[in-house]
Each structure stands twice: as structure tokens, then as C-alpha cells.
Amino acid sequence: METMAKNTLKTGEHPNHQPLIMFKEVYKSFGANNVLNGISFSVNKGENLIILGRSGSGKSVAVKCLVGLTKADKGEITVMGKDVTKLNEQELNQIRMKIGFLFQNGALYDSMTVRQNLAFTLEHNNRNLSKAEVDTAILEALTNVGLADAIDKMPSELSGGMRKRIGLARALIIKPEIIIYDEPTAGLDAITAREIIELIRSIKVKYNATSIIITHDLTCAKYTGDRIIVLKDGIIKAEGSYDDIENNTDEWIKSFFQK
């Protein structure tokens, strides 16, 4: 990890200080279980925001509310100036076409080859593309994640790390303005996790996309995030750069950094 430079930007210091995503007093509960308890935060254009927290803290639910997979009970979630909680399916799909989502286990379509996985997303979002254009885009996306030779493989033939990279290629093929990473390094060995972290950093440079990275992996948070928010029981416990969080005096946050 010596080659990686740590990001040290603090809240509000990002060069493009223009919120692309805003959560305002968002609540979500499942039965009696209150998962989000009025969280508010924003993500600036071109920024990598880390949402850090233990399992069950509401990290994944927050991004699921953002992309409309789950409906927030209360509050406002603005993406590119539009409140996604008030959009109909068609309007929501317009927003979704600009968002790439990397799921925890890749969520590749089992019955399709890698090529078909990528073509499926692209062709459904842009039906006017020729076969040659689709093939070029697929190859480009796979080259970006370093897996061009896996193009004709089935998901069952891929390792966990490869599945995540193909999942990332599928998210990138639509040239998204926003990328959401759900636990990008979870379940991976140290070397593969480092490769994924490098990939996230290179994507930030190449695509200049705004990213939300959900993780409980401090190494991932340290090297990929511009800013970090820490969630506990559906509320934001702390916010700031990695150094701010590391130096936080709160006992619960300190426990995160204890080895």
C-alpha cells in the first residue's frame, strides 16, 4: 500500500464544492426497526464519500433509498437537483441511467456471459447503438478493470474479485456520473482488496465521477475517500477526513481503529 497516497481533504475543501447528492432528514424503518433516523449529508461533484459503519448501521439502506430500491419514510433525497422520493418510475429511471452501482457480490446475471452482462445493461439504456459500438464499449469497460480476456466466461467461472471487477465494468459501461460501491472489498483477500482499491482510485481520475463508497474496511476508507461519514444506529456519529475520524475522541469511533 506504500504506492497509495492518502486523501486528506476535509469537509468543504473539495475543489468542486457543488452538492450532487443531498440527504435531508431521511428516516426509514422496517416494522419496529428504525434503520435511518433523520440522516442529513451531501456529496459534492467529483467527490468520493465514504459511509463507514458496522453491519446494520443503515449504510446500505441509505444508498438503496438513493437509487429508489427502497422508499424512504420521510425526508428528502436530492440527486442532480431532483428529489428521488417524489419521482415516478420513468423519471427515476432517467436518474438511474446516470448511476453505476457495484453490488457487494457483483450481482452478475448468472444465465449470461460477461459480454452479455455488459451488453444487456448498455443495450437497454441505449437501444440505438450498433453492434460494433456495443462491442467497443464492452471491451473498453473490461480493459478498464483489467479483465478483457474474461469476456466470454460465465459468472460461475469467475473468482470473487473478478466478479466484483466485472460488476464494476457493468457499472462503468453506461459512463455514470455517480458510482455507488457497496462493500467493494468485503470478502476479498488482502491483495485482491488492494487491487480493487487501486481500481476505485483510477476510476475517480479517469471518469471524474462522484462516488459513494459503503464500507467497514478502514484501509479502503483511508485510500479511496475524500470525506467520511460514520453511521451508528441510523444517525451520523462523525464526519470529516480520515485523519479527523481517526483522531476523534468518541469511544465508539475509537473502537473502530483498535486492532
Binding site: V67, L69, R96, F101, F103, N105, A107, L108, T121, N125
Partner: peptide
């Protein structure tokens, strides 16, 4: 395995 969610997120 979240494949249905992946479809939905891909519009």
C-alpha cells in the same frame, strides 16, 4: 443474489 435489484438500478 441482488440480480433483480441490479436490473432495477440499471433502469
Amino acid at each position: 443474489t441482488e440480480q433483480i435489484d441490479a436490473m432495477e438500478v440499471s433502469a
